[in-house]
Amino acid sequence: MSSIRLTLLTLVTMLCFAGNSVLCRLALRQTSIDAASFTSVRLISGALMLALLVHGRQRFRGSVIASRGRFPGLGGSWISALALFAYASSLSFSYANISTGIGALLLFGAVQATMILTGLWHGERLNARQLGGLLLAMAGVVAILSPRLDAPPLGSALLMLASGVAWGVYSLRGRGVADPTGDTAGNFLRATLLSVLLSAALLTHQQLDGLGALYAVLSGAITSGMGYAVWYVVLPKLTRTRAAAVQLSVPVLASLAGALFVHEPITLRLLLTSLAVLGGIAMVVYSRPSAV
């Protein structure tokens, strides 16, 4: 793959990741759809898109796989599906009360922190620069959560952090799989069943909205389904450090898109906390940790 094509595909995936935050925020702020319904429509749309991609790939290869109790070509596991469902549902409920930029910052900060802490658990060690970066990032998160007039609701912020942890767990479980697209399709399908159960449990609070459902379909089929498929094509071509670093652009892109499409202000508080969180994480990922 040429460097130009790799750069363009990487940019597309980062725009898709930022688009998920923007579409979710648009739906839950500007339409009447409820968070559970948005999650269900998003996951169903993503599952259908990924299933079509897997089916089209099989037809292109001229292969027919017997199902034997599972959907042809779809892998994954219930544990990964549970992590995916936790990510998607927490994201939706959080974005009902939190701005696009702050939400994306907390989300991807938690994703990177989960991966960094997992590395420490498995024997990696941080040097002085990395430790300073981790402390700086943590200080930025504390600053976001500190009580101020423009601070996000604590419950929504903690829910977004939980969403980031769940996505980090899902990403870690997906590393090194033989067929990432097929596994992602299977995980989406399983997560869809969980989201339907959630919607059934909250049926009395259900509010469907045509525009909100359209945003959910776009989030599921385009920025999630197709976005993840492209990301898994790009990921093997990137080093671990570069893969982590490029994702730091997502909160910035989400903040700009939030200002453009959701008319959310880019405040000095957002700029300073973003600098602390993203700069701190960059200090960690740009220096290779040492193993015991």
Rank of each mutant, 00 (worst) to 15 (best):
N97G: 08
L154R: 12
I116S: 01
F85L: 04
L193R: 07
L145F: 02
R175Y: 00
G103H: 03
L172Y: 08
S94T: 06
S146T: 15
L197V: 15
Y170V: 02
A143Q: 09
S146P: 00
P153Q: 04
G132Q: 04
L198E: 02
R175I: 07
L161H: 08
Q112G: 05
F85W: 10
L159V: 04
S199H: 13
T181D: 05
F93C: 01
V196T: 01
T118L: 11
L107D: 00
G119H: 03
I144V: 15
I102T: 15
R190S: 01
T114N: 06
A86V: 06
G132N: 10
L197M: 13
L107V: 02
L208S: 12
G75T: 11
S195I: 00
A162I: 03
L106Y: 05
G168Y: 05
A166E: 06
L91S: 13
V165T: 14
S90T: 10
A88G: 09
G119Q: 01
N187F: 01
A96F: 05
Q206K: 04
S156D: 09
D209W: 01
V196G: 02
R125E: 13
G210P: 03
M138K: 01
T114P: 08
S77E: 05
Y215G: 01
D179Y: 13
D209V: 03
G210A: 14
V165Q: 03
A162N: 01
A162S: 11
S89V: 07
A137D: 08
L107S: 04
G123E: 09
